[in-house]
Amino acid sequence: MERLGRKSFSRGLVVPKPLLAGFNALIGFFILLLVWYVLSHTIAPKVPDPAKTLGIFWQLLIDPFYDNGPNDKGIGLQLWLSLERVFVGFGLGALIAVPLGIVIGASEGLRAMLNPVIQMLRPVSPLAWFPVGLAAFQASEQAAIFVIAICSLWPTLINTALGVGSIPQDYRNVARVYAFSPWTYLTRVVLPHSLLYVFTGFRLGMGIAWMVIVAAEMLAGGTGVGFFVWDSYNSGQLEYVMASILFIGLVGWALDALLGQLVRRFSHG
């Protein structure tokens, strides 16, 4: 059957799948560069074109970790500083979101009470939270982490609650009939069932955290890729801004792929 099925269609040259995917991606990027080139040479002449940007990109890439004082660090170092903040902020957010999500998911009353609050706070921009963080912590570093935490915890909170709220009645009946302790119920029913939801929340939340970090660091100043972008703009080096965008995008992509792997792993198990 197998021989009849697949192979008979591609009689001649057989292109391996990953190669084909890579080829398609290249075409996609080529289109991006083309559009970018055309735009930067017509309606937005101040924006550096792909050639200039990629030149800087390469320059930044080959020496990523140099450190010549507070205003001149390699892009790798800046990205690393940003990632650190993202992990701390996201981690704090998750520490709040997962337990709270479990409690909200388990109680219909609590869900009815808190859902409107969540829906109201969720769309608030990180830029609006920043002054709140500054006022609360009196320090821009902590304010940046606060902003990341509060903006990235919502998907985790909502998805965890969704997971816990969707535990099938059958499993709850098993726990009731066989007198599971609350701890057994949590570890043997609630968490295994909700894990996929929680990780999906993590993935979405991480995406938000990575978007928020740039804004937060622009406001906080000092270090990080957001600061780097803003500092480059202020010194009129737009090629650096454009190159940073490429770096930010690539790191964000990698983060998402990493968490996507985790989600996939739990959806099979």
């Binding site: 059958d170 499993y171 009946n173 098993v174 295994p192 198990g269």
Partner: peptide, 10 residues
């Protein structure tokens, strides 16, 4: 139970 109700992750 009619549908066995085993916990699928155990």
């Amino acid at each position: 139970f009619q549908n066995y109700s085993l916990l699928p992750w155990l």
